[in-house]
């Protein structure tokens, strides 16, 4: 027996597969993307159908507003918002109670609904609308979220997504990034659909109450004026549809007589109170 005089020349590709790593990567990333998106879609599809079956009483009562108002003025505004909302709510509504909270210290124009039938309106929002019609549209939109049970839908979707993440063991690893992003994109797409549904429902409520929908686009016009870049953000990651799209939707549903319909102004005391506060600030 003796050692070989030289090493054999082994063929390449036994221990290293010379496949195209890029193609391999694209196939795997695509499959993961598709899997997460279709799973999210399934969850979203299910959530929208399950949510209405969940009794309203089961919704946890979540409000972000402080309990009680510091001044009589704030209490008066809160009462006004509450009564305006009550007038918009249809008689046959299945929602037992809707509470409107006034956030006097928030300057950003915003309104949002939270679980348990809570609507929040900021000072910035009242500054942004010019008429009662504009304000009523926002309140009707938030009420529509509550009526369509969107807080429950959102909760179910989030539970579903947490489950996907737990099942697949995703963390901050690199493949996790792909999964998280595709999950986020689907969630945002559902969120935009919910906003569209709320806009459509709100428009019906506004037409029922005023008989026309003039002024309903006031807030969106204000958003566009305040920030022209609001519409240049790429749509996939946005939680709301493009502002321009929402204005177009509202305009396309206006009846022929709507342009001549008269707007109901905000109460004089409210306008005075708002302008006084902005002067002191």
């Amino acid at each position: 027996m003796s050692f070989p005089k030289e090493n054999p020349q082994l063929p390449e590709g036994i221990n290293n597969h010379h496949e195209s790593p890029f193609v391999d990567f694209v196939i795997m990333a695509g499959a993961l993307l598709l899997a997460v998106v279709s799973l999210s879609f399934l969850i979203g599809w299910g959530a929208v159908r399950i949510a209405p079956a969940v009794p309203f009483e089961w919704e946890p009562d979540i409000s972000l507003a402080p309990s009680g108002y510091s001044s009589e003025e704030d209490q008066r505004i809160a009462d006004y918002l509450q009564s305006l909302t009550q007038q918009l709510i249809p008689q046959e509504s299945e929602i037992p109670s809707v509470k409107v909270h006034w956030l006097p210290d928030v300057d950003a124009a915003n309104a949002f609904a939270t679980s348990g039938g809570n609507i929040h309106v900021t000072r910035g929002l009242l500054d942004a609308v010019n008429s009662e019609n504009g304000l009523a549209m926002v309140l009707a939109h938030e009420y529509a979220h509550i009526e369509l049970r969107h807080p429950v839908v959102l909760m179910l979707e989030q539970i579903g997504h947490t489950l996907i993440a737990l099942l697949t063991g995703f963390d901050n690893s690199s493949a996790g990034t792909i999964a998280q992003q595709s999950g986020l994109i689907s969630l945002m797409a559902f969120s935009r659909n919910m906003e569209r549904a709320a806009d459509a429902r709100a428009l019906t409520l506004i037409n029922n109450y005023y008989g026309h929908s003039r002024g309903s686009e006031e807030l969106f016009e204000h958003i566009l004026e305040a920030d022209e870049s609001a519409d240049r953000q790429w749509g996939l990651w946005q939680s709301h549809p493009a502002t321009v799209e929402r204005i177009e939707f509202l305009n396309s549903h206006k009846k022929s007589g709507d342009t001549h319909a008269s707007l109901r102004p905000l109460p004089t005391w409210l306008s005075k109170s708002l302008s006084r506060d902005s002067e002191t600030q």
């Binding site: 790593p21 795997m28 499959a31 993961l32 690893s173 493949a175 996790g176």
Partner: peptide
């Protein structure tokens, strides 16, 4: 790139 490709392989 290799870590991403490998972590994808971890799933499939």
């Amino acid at each position: 790139f290799k870590t991403v490709a490998a972590s994808l392989r971890n799933i499939f």
